[in-house]
Simulated scan of single mutants.
Amino acid sequence: MPDVFVAGLDGQTRKKAIAILNENLAEVIALTLAVKQAHWNLKGAGFIGVHELLDDVADRLRDSADLMAERAVILGGFARGTLEVAAETAKMDAYPVEEEDINAHIKALKDRFLTVGESVRKGIADAGDAGDEDTADIMTEVSRAIDKDAWFIGANATK
């Protein structure tokens, strides 16, 4: 492992936390790309509001990715945040690339936000169980942002 910049955590705890962070980093990168796919292609009533919202959501997801990636490095690991790693390891369902209906995008995004949110919540518990409350706290911050954005996106669905 590279240099360690945190005190009080043994190597095994750091290793577990790094794995948790990288697993969720891949999910958040995949989710960010899904959000941008929807942003570029959606059409329908309410287009401009959802289009602009999705840019803000992508920015927040990138902020979350930064938090997780930087924590992995602080713990002495590597951030595994390439497109190739995300494509290989993310468990989120592939996003439809030939969809334009705004409501279909809202549903597809909501479903993926719920999946990633579940993974992040598991990461909170796993980091706490491993003894790294700081990583659990970062994952909690990510979870809050994902929940809020899922709600923002879902609130645009038409009945």
Rank of each mutant, 00 (worst) to 15 (best):
M68G: 15
A136L: 06
E100L: 09
W40C: 06
M68C: 15
D66T: 10
A58C: 01
E99V: 14
I29P: 00
M139T: 15
D126K: 03
N24D: 04
L42K: 00
V142G: 10
V6H: 12
A19S: 09
A130N: 00
A125F: 07
N41H: 08
L109Y: 10
L61A: 08
E70H: 08
A108N: 05
L33S: 02
R60Q: 13
M1V: 05
I106P: 10
F78D: 03
I138D: 15
R144I: 09
F152I: 11
I106D: 06
L75P: 14
T13M: 11
K43C: 05
G77N: 06
I48T: 12
A145R: 14
E84M: 14
V85S: 08
W151S: 05
E100P: 09
A130L: 01
G128K: 05
A136C: 11
I102A: 03
L42N: 01
V116C: 00
F47T: 03
A90T: 06
K15N: 11
N22K: 02
R80E: 07
E84L: 13
D101V: 03
D66S: 07
M68H: 13
A17R: 08
A38V: 09
I29Q: 06
L83Y: 15
F113L: 05
V73Y: 04
T13E: 08
H105F: 04
D3W: 10
N22W: 00
L67R: 15
A155S: 00
R144Q: 15
I48A: 12
V6M: 14
G77L: 04
E88S: 06
G81N: 02
E84I: 13
A58S: 01
Q12L: 07
D137I: 15
S64Q: 10
T32F: 14
W40E: 03
T32K: 14
E52D: 09
L31T: 04
A94N: 14
D132N: 04
R62G: 08
A72W: 00
A34W: 06
L83G: 06
R62Q: 12
M1Y: 03
A130S: 02
G154Y: 04
N103F: 11
A127P: 00
L33F: 01
W40N: 08
A130P: 00
V120I: 04
V120E: 02
R60M: 11
R80S: 04
L83P: 01
L9H: 12
H105L: 02
R14C: 02
S119D: 04
A65P: 01
T13Q: 11
A87N: 10
F78L: 12
E100M: 11
A79K: 06
N103P: 01
W40R: 02
G131Q: 09
E133T: 14
